[in-house]
Design a protein around this nucleic acid. Sequence first.
DNA 1: CTGAAAGCGCTTACAG
DNA 2: CTGAAAGCGCTTACAG
Lengths: 333, 333
Amino acid sequence: MSGGERLPKLDDVARLAGVSTATVSRFVNDPRVVAAATAERIRAAIAEIGYIPNRLAGGLASKRSGLVAALVPDLALSVFNTTIDAMVDELSADGEIVMLGLTGIDNSRMRSLVEAALSRRVDAIILTGIVEDEALRALLGARHATVVETWGLPDDPIDVAIGFSHTAVGREVARFAHARGYRSAHLVSATGARATERREGFIAEWQALGGDAPSEDLIEAQTRFGHGRAAFRAMRSLPRKPDLVVCSSDWLAQGILVEALAAGLRVPDDLAVIGFGNLSIAADMRPTITTVDIDGARIGREAIAVLRRREAGEEINPRTIDVGFRMMVRESA
Amino acid sequence: MSGGERLPKLDDVARLAGVSTATVSRFVNDPRVVAAATAERIRAAIAEIGYIPNRLAGGLASKRSGLVAALVPDLALSVFNTTIDAMVDELSADGEIVMLGLTGIDNSRMRSLVEAALSRRVDAIILTGIVEDEALRALLGARHATVVETWGLPDDPIDVAIGFSHTAVGREVARFAHARGYRSAHLVSATGARATERREGFIAEWQALGGDAPSEDLIEAQTRFGHGRAAFRAMRSLPRKPDLVVCSSDWLAQGILVEALAAGLRVPDDLAVIGFGNLSIAADMRPTITTVDIDGARIGREAIAVLRRREAGEEINPRTIDVGFRMMVRESA
DNA sequence: CTGAAAGCGCTTACAG
DNA sequence: CTGAAAGCGCTTACAG
C-alpha cells in the first residue's frame, strides 16, 4: 500500500555508513566477515533507514534465490501437512521461505507450477509423489534446482527421493490382518497412484496367504470422512459381509467407524477397521484406530537436509532414502 | 540437479527468432502485442531452446514480482485451508504463486516472515488475523505491497481487511443457545485473539439475556480433537453440570461429542454441543454438529480480487469487507 | 509493431 | 578487511 517514496537500497546504507556497497552486501549475507567497528556502523545505518534487502536483485546476481518450492496435491490431504510443517520450520530458521503450489488432486496444475517455480529460479523443488510424465522429468532434470520426490520410492528418481514403499505397506497390512484372524476383507481406497500401490500390495499378499479376493470400493475423489460413511452403506449391501475394512486413509476409517457404531456394530468384533496415515484423529477416536504411521516430519527434514548437503557441494548418495513405516496397532483392528 | 550448461535466456530467443529482446519480452508478457508472424517465430524459438523466463530478473526490472505471500499460523488450523486453496486457485490461473509462511500458533515468526516476504518484493501480503504490533504495522504500511488482513475486522486496517466480527459470532451463538432453552453453558476455548473475541461476545450476550456466568476451560495450544476429549473429562468433574458446551472449533466439538457418546450421554438431550468453523467433519459426524459457517473460500477470493483492483489502479473503498457468518443448525444443539 | 539502450539492486572475482 | 566495477537477465520509456 502507500507508496510514492523510493525504498532504501544497499547504496543508501553504504553512503550512510561510509563504506562501499560491497561491504554492506557482505555484512548482510554474513555479518562476521566485516570488521566489528564497520559492522556496527552498517547495523546502525540499516536500522536508521529501515533497509530491507531486495532478494530479487540478490538472487539474480548470486543465482541463489533462497526459495524452495513445495508442490502438494491439496491442503486438505493433511497427511502431507506434517511434511510441509517440518520443511517450513527448517527453512524459516534461515529466512528462507516456501513457495506453495497446489497441483490439484489429479496433478493437473503440476506442469505450470513447475514452470512457475523454475522461473523464480528456486533452489529446490520438493514434490509429493513421484513424477511419471517424461516431459516433466526432462524439464526438472535439466535444471540446476535440487529436485526431491517424496512419499514414494521410485527406482529411478529424477534427482533424489525420500519416501517408503507403498506396496510394502499394503503387504504388511495384509500380513497383520491375516495374523489377526480376519478372513473377509473389504477395501475402500482412493484411486491415486500411491493408494493404488498399497491396494495392490495388500491384495497380492492377502491372496498369497490364502485369502479370498477382497471386495472393493474405489473412491475417485479426495477421500474424506463423508466418503467413509457412504462406503459403509455400500458395503452393508454387499452379499458377503466383510469382517475387516482396510481404508486408504484415516479419514475414511473414521467415517466408517462412526457409521458402524451408529449402526450398532461392535468394533472390532463385528467389524474391524484399519486406516492409513496415523493422523491425530487415529489416536483420538473412540475406539482408537489401527493404522500405519509415516514419519511425515522426517520426510520434510530429510528433504531440507539433502538440500543443505547439495549446497555444501556434497555428493548425494544413495539418491533414495527409505523412511519406512510402522503399524500402529490400536483398538479398531 | 545436473548443471554446468548455461540456461537459455531472452537474448538467445531473440537471436534465434531474429528480433530484439524487447520484442521477446513483450511477447512473453502478452503475446497479443506483437505481430502474428513475429509471435510465431518467437513461439518456435522458445519451444526449440526450452526457454523459461527468469522472473527474478523480470521482477527486478518491472517492480512486480508476481509473488503473493500468505501468512497463516499453522497448516493444521484447517479452518484457513479453504482460504488458501481459493487464493491459490485464483492466482495459479495467472502463473502467480503463493509464498507460504507459517507464523506459528503464537505468531512468533510473523516478523521474520514479513521481512522475508518484503525482501522478495511481493505484490501482496495476506495475513490471517489482524496485526496489533505497532512496529509491524508501520513496516507493512510503509511498503508498496497490498496488505490484506483476513478473518478479522479491525477498525483501522493497515490497508484492507476481509473478515467478520468474532464478537458478533459469539453474541449470535449466545442468542441461539438461549432461544434453544439451554441454561447452563460451559465454554471450551482456545486462547488466541479471535477465539477470545468470540468467547467474550458469547459471555456478554449470554449474561445480557439473564444467563449465569458460564464455566470455562481455556486451551493454550492449537485446539484438536484430543483436547476436546480432555475438556470433556474436566467438565464432568465440575460441581455444576452444563447442558451445553460451546467450543471454539469443530475439532473440539468433535472430541467432546465422541467422548460424550462413549460415556453414554445423549446428544443434544443430555448435553448439547456447538462448534465453530463448519469443517467437513461437522456435517459428517454422528450426530451432525451445530456450528458457525465462515465462507473461507470467499475470503480468499475477495483478497485476490482486492489485489487485482489495486493493480488496475482502482481505489479500494471501503477498506473493510464483512463476509459475515451463518449459524449451521444441525443435530448436536 | 519494433529496436537501442538505460536501468532495476544486488553479488563477487579481482586487486589491494 | 575493503573497494571499484562488471555483470546477473530482464523491462520499458523513447523514438521511429
